[in-house]
């Protein structure tokens, strides 16, 4: 490789590239959505969630816990409970499946397959976040005492859910340790359960005072950023190979 590489492309490489393009024609780049649909179609739901039964069972337990806490909590702590519970299902199920995947060299093996484990994980994240969003919206609606409170609690719960999901998927993208996900989950829960313990009623008052437009905005921004992170996982383009 000559020094010209730094400045541009060597003439013979350029000629070869032009000849290749003329032979093949220009290929339309595949979008993340098309890629996701292809993976879903070719792998099938069964293989996307292969060997995730334990995490799914555990997540069932989490849903029960969410129902008990959200519906059983006194009205004075409803906002606190919504924020603390909304991410539970998502974070536990994703941390569980990802830790099991990363615990063995199977993770590396699956990274060398046509559909890499990180691409499959992107589809799992989409599925888990959709289910978690529906559960959060349902529970927040059921725990609310009136329509006005539904409009407060649902965006608040969704903001907490998508905020957590975004932080967790970012952690997933940039770490390889199986413990990274567990540490994330424990820290997240400690912060959001610890805050009301530390600040008491002031914390609940703070959450209750949040503007619906603000919480809706946070939920939408975090959801969009989450989709962007999933798209990055689906594409997994690596460009940091530096020529000699």
């Amino acid at each position: 490789m000559s020094e010209n590489w730094q400045l541009g492309v060597e003439p013979e490489v350029k000629d070869r590239a032009i000849a290749h393009i003329l032979d093949e024609g220009l290929v339309h780049p595949v979008s993340a959505w098309e890629r996701a649909r292809t993976i879903q179609r070719e792998l099938g739901t069964k293989n996307i969630f292969f060997d995730t039964a334990w995490s799914l069972i555990f997540s069932g337990v989490m849903v029960v816990a969410m129902i008990v806490i959200t519906l059983g909590v006194p009205a004075a702590w409803r906002h606190t409970a919504t924020v603390a519970c909304a991410p539970l299902l998502f974070t536990v199920i994703l941390a569980g499946t990802e830790m099991l995947e990363r615990a063995t060299a199977m993770y590396d093996l699956k990274q060398t397959a046509h559909f890499t484990i990180r691409q499959v994980t992107a589809l799992r994240v989409m599925a888990y976040s959709l289910v978690a969003a529906v559960v959060t919206a349902l529970l927040a609606s059921l725990s609310a005492t009136g329509a006005a409170e539904v409009l407060t609690l649902v965006p608040l719960g969704l903001a907490a859910l998508f905020g957590c999901a975004l932080a967790e998927v970012s952690t997933l993208r940039f770490t390889r340790s199986p413990w990274a996900m567990a540490v994330f989950t424990v820290v997240w829960m400690a912060v959001w359960i610890g805050a009301p313990v530390r600040f008491g009623e002031a914390w609940e008052a703070c959450l209750a005072s949040l503007n619906t437009a603000l919480t809706s905005g946070i939920a939408i921004i975090c959801a969009v950023a989450l989709v962007w992170q999933c798209a990055a996982l689906l594409k997994e383009s690596r460009t940091h190979v530096i020529p000699a």
Binding site: D51, T104, A105, D108, L109, T112, H114, E236, T239, V241
Partner: peptide, 21 residues
């Protein structure tokens, strides 16, 4: 790296202690 999935399609890999279900 640029080949991506096209390279992985021609690759067979057995890691040490590969883990199994």
């Amino acid at each position: 790296v640029a080949l991506g999935a096209a390279y992985r399609d021609i690759l067979g890999y057995l890691p040490q202690d590969f883990g199994y279900y």
